[in-house]
Design a protein around this nucleic acid. Sequence first.
DNA 1: AATATTTCCTAAATCGGTTTAGGTTTATTA
DNA 2: TAATAAACCTAAACCGATTTAGGAAATATT
Lengths: 345, 345
Amino acid sequence: MAKKKITIGDIAKALGVSKTTVSFVLNGKARKIQISQELEKRVLDYIQQVGYIPNQYAQGLRSGKTRIIGMLVEDISDSFFSAIARQIEEKAYKMGYKIVYSSTENNTEKAKEMLEVYKNSRVDGYIIAPPPAIENEINELIKDGFPVVLFDRTLPGLYTDNIIVDNFNSVYEAMTHFVSNGFKNIAFITLSSDQVQMLERERGYLQTMSEIGAPYIIKRIKYHDDKLHSIQEIETFLTSHRHIDAVFFATNYIAENGLEAIRNLKLTIPDDLGVIVFDDNNMFRLFSPSITAISQPINEIASNSISLILDKLTNKLASHDQSVNIILKNTLVIRESSQKKQRTK
Amino acid sequence: MAKKKITIGDIAKALGVSKTTVSFVLNGKARKIQISQELEKRVLDYIQQVGYIPNQYAQGLRSGKTRIIGMLVEDISDSFFSAIARQIEEKAYKMGYKIVYSSTENNTEKAKEMLEVYKNSRVDGYIIAPPPAIENEINELIKDGFPVVLFDRTLPGLYTDNIIVDNFNSVYEAMTHFVSNGFKNIAFITLSSDQVQMLERERGYLQTMSEIGAPYIIKRIKYHDDKLHSIQEIETFLTSHRHIDAVFFATNYIAENGLEAIRNLKLTIPDDLGVIVFDDNNMFRLFSPSITAISQPINEIASNSISLILDKLTNKLASHDQSVNIILKNTLVIRESSQKKQRTK
DNA sequence: AATATTTCCTAAATCGGTTTAGGTTTATTA
DNA sequence: TAATAAACCTAAACCGATTTAGGAAATATT
């Protein structure tokens, strides 16, 4: 089974034709360059028979193409991103592409570094969940003709393909659900960030609150390597705002720490405090009480991203030839943590 | 900033030397081949100045090396594997290596396919959580001189580097903890699998049970794409074994479904049923009651794997020249789900 | 002074493909 | 019949590095 590397030259020799011919057949250009059907078939059959596979580095060297897609996520160990990576990987492999990925930690510098690495590695295209202030670098890529697909967030003023979710409406829907369950003093705990997706979520909150004429209670916390820090910040906030009867956590990082804060304060969900989280987690349905969450359409995000990229790659359309903007719908998964009335027992 | 691809030839021309000289300097072989310090410095300085980076595909083509490590995990969206991937990725990049990864679903056929893909991509080395019956393919790799590091499980009769955890002792410790908290009729729910790591965990269970003279209660369930199926299987098992007072879940897949089964049956943890899970999860400390778990040393697993591989790669030792076997210790994180007595409130 | 060593550097082959610019035949047209 | 076009195929350049084999100049040896 351990096949010795067979080259295009070997094939040419074996069939008594030129490398050129074999190459053209391999690349489906037989028609174009007028190679007889008979020869084409002979080559194809032989290739099939010996199980020839081109050396990708020779191809890469000559054509500049590598069949590698570079992916930049915020954190590959985050369940949202790893789930997406998983699906993208699978489809990519099926189409003969490989994925190299890397975690930016939403850190602009790290992201820039990784883009450099990718560029030097001559990846063919990019799937990126962009950190802030990376517009210029991404514009460079686009100008250089590389396919780029952004997901999870957009960068304002950047003419790329985007796959995002309907942050505003899904938060609005969740908030409305809160309200119809009798919650009114609803706090919105978010990351201090001016990334679009976060602002949109906030806008959904503001909209609801202003509609019901309730005051805004917004707490912004900074991302901190030390979770304890974030947890305490939330605890302090909650204890100093006793009138709050529900809280919306705007990201899963916040939610994890927020839930721990609630636990530390021995508050009862949802009687003392209703809870809804942006971004669902496998485990939320197992909590007692189970946690209501906005679930993002991971499958669709992944499949749209990868097919967009592959499209651009195979059609050889440069990124700036067109630009697709896909906004996907989230699902509100209603569980116990947001329903004061119907709680069993 | 968009540097035009500058080649080794450009450098040679600019400095009025030969490509050969530049190449030798670049590869640190200046000394060996007797290039004057002065010229070496001149080349180095110039390279620095123009920010030259070699074309990896030319290098790959010529040298057969790609600075890519192929990684095979069971499921990149599983928190255990994604956490490890994250760390490995980070260290690899720092050393100038890229990681391409892929999920096997513990499926032998899929793993074989991916190994083929990796081979064709000429990856330099392999980090693998091996599925069953993949011995031959891995032996091939080793015979071909590729560095291979196995983690999470071993394959019996395979002379590779392994990074594993002390499955037996950590389960034994967890079981002992159960016993000292008054649990006795302890069930062991596991995957039907004869992979070493699973058998070792089972051995830890058996050892404890035989020491306390209690009968074995083992339930094996098959991995099923449909979680509901697994959940029901566990429900049925639990309802037909009412005398069980505690249960050990041998993997996180089982645990997730097992916890849901317990929830569906409205059993109270730990009063009706003590629970310990193999493999910790971020969320377990937030459960009510919180879930006791055996936590694997993710950092150590990752750092050992990557440094072993890099070692082999840079020392150019073939895999069969030596073989390292590292067994790491797990930590039992004791929480509420396994403590009948001390439970607060 | 003649020869042998070192020291320092380079020409050219090579890796395995892709692609440009043709070169033969054979068929068609004038 | 000669000129033109079409059909079919290939030689050789090229991508950008690494590495072998060896050349010229400086130094050491006899």
